[in-house]
Design a protein around this nucleic acid. Structure first.
Lengths: 159, 159
DNA sequence: CGTACAACTGAGCATATTGCCCAGCCGAAA
DNA sequence: TTTCGGCTGGGCAATATGCTCAGTTGTACG
């Protein structure tokens, strides 16, 4: 599902001014409204655009502390651990990774002290053998996608 | 900036049906349109809602492989390394964390083989002493915020 | 107990956008 | 040469938006 330049420009525009609307978009891109609409529909059914959910800042919600935890799981306990972690609101994300049957998760907390509570809740579960935590100090590159979109658009064009 | 129940319901609604519009929202929530509009404005200027950017799936863009890299930086090279990583499109996110002056970043690649190229590009920089990579196999809990929003809304109400 | 203030309601209005339709045009593939 | 998918540019009714305003709550505070 490669994307072309126009798709790329649509995505970039949408990222810069999300509330822009199809009509204004078509004006800025210099194409017909129907075209933009068709592209958007395609991007969404393609799964390239998963949605337009609001991006909520945990810090503004009172959870300014972010941490990454690496978990070591007891053999066969994977599914249980996943289910457990899914019930903890402060677990924002969970991945299983290569390595020693490991998992990696992103946590938030109200304070460093509160982080202890969260970690206790996370690791206070039978299948978890060991956990190591790294607290995030800075976030020089916040989650971004535009450079990759531009890369993908350029690549597809180079054909 | 605590949020109340109504804010919470707005955020949840918005997360479930992002394209919903203020009017329809006010109908579903049973409040006046102006109220929803005021709340939304407040949530945005609060910074609770950072935006409504499109959520783009790297996999659909041709980058199905995700990995986390932990980097060890040479003293004083932090800023240079950050600037370097910011230029790599495949670096989706970068954090500095506690530990041995470490950084943690999220990478994507077109394939496992391509991941090698990305890693080479990432670590092929002078200030980086050591790097270890974990490839993501599964993502049992994709990045989510709703449970935390509900938690925060409930907390604020319990006053 | 009374007052002042902030928030919500319900309504109206002009303007802009949406979703949907169509006919015509063009370039690429068969 | 024919066919077909994608783009254009236009029109239409229905709907949403941004804005304003007066009246009503609810609550904190003197």
């Amino acid at each position: 599902m490669a994307i072309d330049q126009l798709d790329g420009r649509i995505l970039v525009l949408l990222a810069q001014e999300p509330r822009i609307g199809v009509l204004e978009m078509s004006r800025r891109l210099g194409v017909a409204r129907g075209t933009v609409q068709a592209r958007l529909d395609r991007l969404q059914s393609n799964g390239v655009i998963q949605g337009f959910g609001p991006q909520v800042d945990p810090a503004a919600l009172g959870y300014p502390v972010t941490a990454f935890a690496t978990l070591q799981i007891r053999q066969g306990q994977g599914p249980d651990v996943r289910a457990h972690l899914a019930t903890v609101p402060e677990v924002l994300e969970l991945h299983t990774t290569t390595g020693t049957g490991d998992m990696q998760c992103r946590l938030v907390a109200r304070s460093n002290a509160d982080l202890q509570r969260v970690i206790d809740r996370v690791v206070g579960f039978d299948g978890i053998v060991r956990a190591s935590t790294a607290i995030v100090m800075e976030n020089p590159v916040p989650l971004r996608i535009i450079p990759l979109v531009e890369q993908a658009a350029a690549d597809s064009e180079r054909t």
